[in-house]
Simulated scan of single mutants.
Amino acid sequence: MSTDPRDHRLAVVGGGVMGTNIAALALGHGVPVVLVDVSEAVLAEAEQTVALKLRHAQLMGKLPAGRTPAKLVTSVSLADAADATTVIEAVTELPETKAKVLSEVSQIVRPGTLLISNTSCIPIDEMASSVARPEELVGVHFMNPAYMIVMVEVIRGPRSSDATLTAVTDLLETLGRKGLVVNDAPGFVINQVLHPLINSAAKLVQDGVATVEVVDGLLEGCLGHATGPLRTADLIGLDNLVDSLNVLFERTGDSSCRPCDYLLDLVRAGKFGRKTGEGFYDYGKVAS
């Protein structure tokens, strides 16, 4: 591996919020991307979303000056990831789904290919048992939007090799990201702190202690939280948040991670946050 974008070929599996974020980040730094998902319709929408995010990153000055964006290819076949130097799994936060994708990918790619899970809560070693070469798997928790936030959380599983850590460091440097390495655990660092906070904030609204706006306003104004926990939850996706909280609760038994009724009611109503146009806040239309 190297930090020259011409030496990298990235496959991203999953064309949702984080998959399109990561794809836009890589393309903007000159790294070609194969984006894989289950249907042509999903991929057509994802391609438009990537283009919008790439344009936004350019307008915000978040991409290397003078660098021509690389080419995006979309596919419904995992086989088209075979020539990648790195595969990033960014599918829904369900253990069995991630394990299935990673298992299939690991059988297709050459030995020495870097395998990354963008999981937000599932322990890396839990998924490593499903792949052909567990030492090649590492977690990288990109923040949303990935093309705006420079810091990422790198999760080293017990079986992740030194060579894998070197390869992921090279890739992140190529993408202009800075990674801090943490050891494997449910939720790692960011979401062991953030997700229970969001859940507690939602319960305060549920119990009538304060409105959504007041809860966020207090954490912004008093604690310096950039957007407030509930607006952050809308950006994450409330459906993904509930999945992650369930992972944390099942693996830690911490009652603060049991999704509160208000959060569950929003998800049951299809109000997932910015991506559906409504969550804790009403955005008026579906956000890109």
Rank of each mutant, 00 (worst) to 15 (best):
S2Y: 03
T3A: 05
D4Q: 08
R9I: 05
L10Q: 07
G16S: 02
G28N: 08
V31W: 03
V38D: 08
E40D: 11
A41G: 05
L43V: 01
A44P: 13
E45A: 12
E47Y: 00
V50I: 13
A57V: 09
P64N: 00
R67M: 07
T68E: 13
P69E: 10
K71S: 02
K71C: 00
V73S: 14
S75Y: 07
S75K: 08
S77R: 11
L78H: 05
A79P: 10
A79T: 15
D80I: 11
T85W: 07
T86M: 08
A90K: 06
A90C: 04
A90D: 02
A90V: 06
V91G: 08
V91W: 01
K100M: 15
K100S: 14
L102E: 05
S103P: 07
Q107S: 14
Q107Y: 09
R110V: 14
T113M: 09
L114S: 11
L114D: 05
S120H: 09
E126I: 15
A128S: 11
S129C: 08
S129F: 12
R133K: 13
P134A: 04
E135Y: 10
E136A: 15
E136Y: 14
E136D: 15
E136T: 15
E136R: 14
V140F: 13
N144H: 13
P145K: 05
A146L: 10
Y147W: 15
M148H: 09
I149L: 07
V154W: 08
G157Y: 14
D162Q: 05
A163Q: 15
V168F: 03
T169V: 10
T169A: 14
L172H: 09
K178Y: 15
V182G: 03
N183Y: 06
A185W: 11
F188L: 13
N191T: 06
L194W: 02
L194V: 07
H195C: 02
P196T: 10
I198M: 00
A201D: 04
K203V: 04
V215Y: 10
V215P: 14
D216I: 12
C222H: 13
A226H: 08
T227W: 15
G228L: 11
P229M: 00
R231V: 05
D234T: 02
L235A: 06
N240R: 00
N240P: 01
L241D: 05
V242S: 03
S244N: 11
S244E: 09
N246C: 11
T252H: 10
R258C: 13
C260V: 01
D261A: 01
L264N: 01
V267S: 15
R268T: 06
A269S: 01
G270D: 06
K271V: 03
F272P: 00
G277M: 02
E278Q: 05
D282L: 12
D282S: 11
